[in-house]
Design a protein around this nucleic acid. Sequence first.
RNA 1: CGGGGUGUGGCGCAGUCCGGUAGCGCGCCUGCUUUGGGAGCAGGAGGUCCCGGGUUCGAAUCCCGGCGCCCCGACCA
Length: 482
Amino acid sequence: MADTKALPTRAQDFSAWYNELILRAELADYSPVRGCMVIRPNGYAIWEQMQAALDRMFKETGHQNAYFPLFIPQSFLAKEAEHVEGFAPETAVVTHGGGKELEEPLVVRPTSETIIYAMFSKWIQSYRDLPLLINQWCNVVRWELRTRLFLRTTEFLWQEGHTAHATEAEAEAETRQMLGVYRTFMEDYIAMPVVTGQKTDSERFAGALRTYACEGLMQDNKALQAGTSHNLGQNFARAFDVTFQTAEGGLDHVWSTSWGVSTRLVGGLIMTHGDDSGLVCPPRLAQYQVVIVPIYRSEEERGAVFESCAALRKELLANGIRTHFDQREGMKPGAKYYEWETRGVPLRLEIGPRDLASGSAMLARRTGGKESVSRTGIIARIRSDLEKMQSALFEAAKARREAASLRGPKSKQEFIDFIAADGGFVYAGFCGDPAVETEIKEQTKATIRVIPDAEFQTPDRPTTCIWTGKPAKYEVVWAKAY
RNA sequence: CGGGGUGUGGCGCAGUCCGGUAGCGCGCCUGCUUUGGGAGCAGGAGGUCCCGGGUUCGAAUCCCGGCGCCCCGACCA
């Protein structure tokens, strides 16, 4: 553990707080390779929990997992014009293999559309082969100029779904469905409220018809794009010649989609719930939901306490509660409390001689509060506390986001002032002119996060553009973003 | 790529101005005493001072040239 005892506070320096928290909680570490990170067991465990939940949701919606190669022939990337323009500058390219220069350089995948559609063109012949619903869990590489642990690393882990459909309507429905799956996951598991909606052209995925996204608001009031879902239209199908015979006997290009979330979500979890003591992990994604800390003086006490703790751990595990019994000796209970708090464990049970005598345990919540609870019925109590904490974290995050949202600024100046004062989301009318979008970004550093979906729109829709005063094409959400 | 900072035991740093052969805190190991909110004492292990040149009797320290990393911006999940 680090020598200094207190973490920098969020108010002092959010960025330093974030980096230091990750190192102290041993979620990740800097690697010998610039821009890359090592995900340590405590951080990887969170990712594994995320994967398990998402994977189940993907399968419930009919998708199958597959795996495509890390290397993509460089020429593949060039087949879709917008795509190559968007990704070529940030690819890593392998030029040598086995000591010889390769005839054609291989790109380390920044995303797998190209190689996947090359394969889809072989697999799809008929409308009977559709829809084709594929997902893969893998790593990708994007040569980013500036990196941050979990939020933007040169190599990152993610899942990318790729589907092919017979009609435009089906592709659009799939794109929307997966955006919804992401939203459900972010709300129900990460306890991170998000605003969903469509991206403007400037933030649309390279090669997509339309891009939809989930946008979270972090504690420093900066937005985090947490997941995207793209309707690719027939763009990639045309580039890779993915055609199928229709029921009527004609030939058509498939309509496809792609969607992804990454290890960035771990960063979103940290910045949504972490406090000045360290990580606060939502119970449903915690590696350990409960940690048991034994307290004793003599050898006799130690024996009895350990026996009791071990039995309790077994009981909790048997009831599906992820539990760790901290058996380390020579470390005082207080030191263990601080450590598990830094790591974000939701509940802590302290068991000592007094508790054995009274048939109880001290139950401490990561979000505050500590009391003695009877061993009888402790399972139900813990289950209930975990559920309450899960929903309380979501409600608190949602309240924080709403408090940091400004709907319908009365003037351009109010908009500017709000963003400059570290405001959060601003809902305002926009004329739709890309040049205005660019100008606002240059002057305020805020960007359009999304054109919000109906449920997020302001009931009293703005009619004029906040910047130009011209008629508003639609309401958009502005914020500074990661 | 621009601006700023920084490279010295595992980690955090002092020492650099003014050259004399490396020190502090934490961590680690051993032992004893401890254990209900970050334990104490005693003993101990561990360093090519980022790299390469140069000056000098002598360089962590001065000179020249590289490199790494972090932070802030432009690009992005």
